[in-house]
């Protein structure tokens, strides 16, 4: 694989910067990192391996991150890859850059490689039934990357230069009039080693409480299927597992009352061990499980708690 000459990196989440820089270094010779915000973030990018920091300045609170698309585009030229986090902001920026730079845009890449100067990337399509692979042919290619594709870059000695990039006013007008920190604790299931998944078969909120106890005993995080988060609204959206929710890479996944639709299962498929409890012995989840128990959740769940307490 011949590397590209240039990569431009941006991550709106500090947690993702290290793995995106690692990806950029694997795919290109020169890694340029866009930094917005306090000046100490420049050093953070440099110790993770940025060859050049493109500093966009501290952010006015009425501006949103996406307002910097025109500014970023002004600093990108020639051939190469723009690599960003697959967050909402990353995706919004990606599309804006795609038009400004006449570039291909590819979201949620779970695999990425270079072939004859073109970028090949894969992501889930048809609700997780398949992987779609595209060849990106434009001079500049814009890709948002799934977490976990590259091992995060380790912090080292700060290197490289930092240059200021002047702000370019965006065309459309969006004004941020208020920011609220999200209520409830924020969870990042994608880094959890053990996860319990809750499906409709959990049948009551009381059982959900017992599942919480089991999670504590196992040292696991709680996740759920889409209906539990979006229809029942029993759990936060950040906990819903699947192609359109969070994609997990746990060591152990225990599915409780999860039927096993492909859209959910693809979110846990890479787990080393999958266990499942369901009352229906024909539930598809058992095809994806290493160990299954066909039984009544009302009986099994308290028994699991009791067993692990012992």
């Amino acid at each position: 694989m011949t590397k590209l000459t240039n990569a431009w990196v941006f991550s709106d989440s500090e947690a993702r910067l290290a793995d995106i820089i690692a990806g950029a270094k694997a795919l290109a010779d020169q890694v340029n990192v866009f930094v917005i915000g306090a000046e100490d973030k420049i050093t953070k990018a440099q110790i993770l391996g940025a060859d050049k920091v493109l500093y966009l300045g501290d952010k006015d609170s009425a501006r949103i991150v996406e307002d910097y698309a025109a500014t970023m585009a002004s600093a990108i030229e020639g051939n190469g890859l723009v690599l960003m986090a697959n967050s909402r902001r990353g995706k919004a920026l990606a599309s804006r850059l795609g038009i400004k730079l006449n570039a291909a845009v590819f979201n949620d890449a779970s695999e990425i490689s270079i072939e004859d100067g073109a970028v090949r990337a894969k992501h889930m399509v048809y609700g997780g039934l398949a992987l779609g692979e595209e060849r990106l042919l434009s001079d500049i290619k814009v890709v948002t990357l799934t977490a976990g594709v590259f091992e995060p870059a380790q912090a080292g000695e700060a290197q490289g230069e930092a240059v200021n990039v002047a702000f370019v006013e965006p065309k459309g007008q969006i004004k941020c009039i208020e920011r609220r920190v999200k209520e409830g604790e924020s969870v990042d299931l994608s880094v959890a080693k053990k996860v319990i998944g809750i499906g409709n078969g959990i049948s009551s909120q009381e059982n959900l409480g017992i599942a919480g106890k089991l999670a504590e005993l196992m040292g696991a995080e709680l996740g759920c299927t889409r209906p539990i988060a979006e229809t029942e609204k029993w759990m936060e959206k950040e906990r819903y597992i699947g192609v359109t929710g969070v994609m997990l890479k746990p060591e152990t996944y225990l599915a409780l009352g999860v039927s096993g639709q492909i859209q959910h299962v693809v979110g846990v498929n890479t787990a080393q061990t999958i266990l499942a409890v369901n009352k229906d012995k024909n539930a598809p989840i058992f095809q994806y499980a290493d160990y299954g128990l066909v039984g009544d959740i009302n009986k099994v769940l308290p028994a699991l708690v009791k067993a692990l307490e012992a």
């Binding site: 795609g98 291909a104 398949a130 692979e133 595209e134 499980a289 290493d290 160990y291």
Partner: peptide, 27 residues
């Protein structure tokens, strides 16, 4: 403009699972 092309759409290979299913919920 020709910016990108689809190369393939394929179901991923499933990881081999033990599929040991215990039927029944007695002790």
């Amino acid at each position: 403009p020709a910016l990108a092309e689809t190369i393939a759409v394929n179901a991923p290979k499933q990881k081999q699972r033990q599929q040991i299913v215990i039927e029944g919920d007695d002790d």
